[in-house]
Amino acid sequence: MLLPKFDYHEPATLGEACQVMGDLGQKTKALAGGTDLIVNMKKKILSPACLVYLGRIKEMKKIDSSNGLFKIGAGLTAAEVAEMEEIKNNYSALSRGASCLGSPLIRNLATIAGNLVSARPAADFPPPLMAYGARVVLKSSSGERVVSLDDFFKGPGQTLIAPEEILTEIVLDKLRPFSGAGYIKLGTRQTLEISLVNVAAFVSLDGPDGVIKTARIVLGAVGPVPLRAPSGEKALIGEKPSEALLAKAGEAAAFDSKPIDDYRGSAEYRRAMVDVLTRRALNEAINAARSNLN
């Protein structure tokens, strides 16, 4: 399989990258890990006139923990995210999501930026990141903006990133005590899977045995973009975790989902699985929250 012809740029710094992206305009694509883009180009689904390779930019591979925030360079690979102790310990659902992506070989190439910008509805990074309330930093030569990941996705393959912008960083809040998240992916095989459904859930409790103060439920592969489940979340607020409560939230989340029939699975099945996976993800989240004494 041959790749179409294209021009290639390899900026060494973020500033340079923004400059190049700004100069080249519409027909340019940023190349991060390439695990989606190169495949789509081989299949002739995409043929950008120019690729701007971001993999040499060191600024995009840093993490930074200060001012109550945790910032993750969007150029980090899924493998790096999965293995980072700080993420394993504090954002276990994100670590989980990263370790579910593709295969070990894919995880050594695929980046957070690429996974978010390619915006596949079943992608593994968006649900846990949205559950943790992530924002993304979009940079261009004319400045930068910070966007909630909730607002970032516009449709399959579509986001609100502008052609000249680069997704450089993920911003998370430091986790408060008694808060935590879970992530569950359902696929046919044990690995190398596009999720049939994936669900991430976040809760924060007002004490080890307390009620749920905030909750976020994010559903993947059951809509054109990763979805928040508002009625599922609402069902939880102010309540003490119990099996019955989780069942209620699961049902509500299933109601919130907007699955379609496709050759990978039916809408009906996906909706039913939202229920099951929401319960399980919440369960994980509650356990994580209870053990998070910070």
């Binding site: 399989m1 790749l3 290639y8 390899e10 190349l31 890990g33 390439g34 695990t35 190169i38 495949v39 081989k42 299949k43 690729l51 390779y53 993999g55 493998a79 593709g102 295969s103 070990p104 070989l105 894919i106 050594n108 190439l109 190398l192």
Partner: peptide, 26 residues
């Protein structure tokens, strides 16, 4: 040739990757 099978695995900078998904210039 699309990263599904791993037959093209090489170790690049210490990590195994699918060499079908890496541009030579990269």
């Amino acid at each position: 040739e699309v990263g599904d099978c791993g037959s093209c695995t090489v170790i690049m900078d210490g990590k195994p990757v699918n060499s079908c998904l890496v541009l030579a210039v990269q």
